[in-house]
Amino acid sequence: MSVATIQSRRAWLLSDRPASRLQARLGRAYVAWRRFSANRLALIGLLIIIALLVVAALADVLAPYSPTIGDLKNARLLAPSAAHWFGTDDLGRDIYSRIVYGSRWTLYVVILVAIIAAPIGLLVGTIAGYAGGWTDTILMRITDIFLAFPKLVLALAFVAALGPGIENAVLAIAVTSWPPYARIARAETLTVRNSDYIKAVQLMGASPFRIVLRHIMPLCISSLIIRVTLDMAGIILTAAGLGFLGLGAQPPLPEWGAMIASGRRFILDQWWVAAAPGAAILIVSLGFNLLGDGLRDALDPRSGDQ
């Protein structure tokens, strides 16, 4: 592509007078992307997350061995080598392959939690903020009850009640992580609720439901996305924690937290068994944190438009 066409495309995206809905949206996205990409650390974070997605998608190709079936006879607790990049564990399974497959479980947890917790928080927060009065009091007291318990303890209680397993771990984490989102959404709603543009929509005759759904929620979403992204690291760690305690993923599932738990026994002599999944958790958590910071700069409604 020549320089001229790139430049004309940029001009089209940044145009002050977009000619179509699509151009207006793309232009807005492009401005956010420019702000995001100006932050080098955020790009690194994005790269890490993209790598995680690629690894998870291509796990079958990337992993040289089975993640669950090991060679108990010949390959127990081998040190890292050309054949086994990260060594093998006590059941003779290739740790590299397990980490590659484990990325799927990490994504599974993170995405499911986000899909369950963020909308609940958004709904509770915006409704409480917009309705005010009794609705607000009741919804926020419920939120406070959830916030009063430490996250991991509450998740433990839920898993203990529901039975161990990765699905229940996801559910437990989701149930414990929506309250902060509700708080954020409510705070954001309170700041826009009395603005003239919301009043203007009220004067159009819009129903409260429509106002919350179409006019208030879009304003809360960006701060929520930022917060959820920043929380991803915490979610991964909670999931790993549950896995470590034996309440999350059950063997032989290659979940990173559970892998650390089983490697704990050999940590002095065969350090790589626990170190490799630990490093994976560290890197992915870091990636989500950097991405979240970058998104905050790019999407922050306050720093943005003018």
Partner: peptide, 16 residues
């Protein structure tokens, strides 16, 4: 219908 005083506050910031 009504027109508000502050043109900077009466239009939704995220809508065309």
């Amino acid at each position: 219908q009504m027109v508000f005083q502050d043109p900077y506050g009466s239009l939704h910031p995220r809508q065309t």
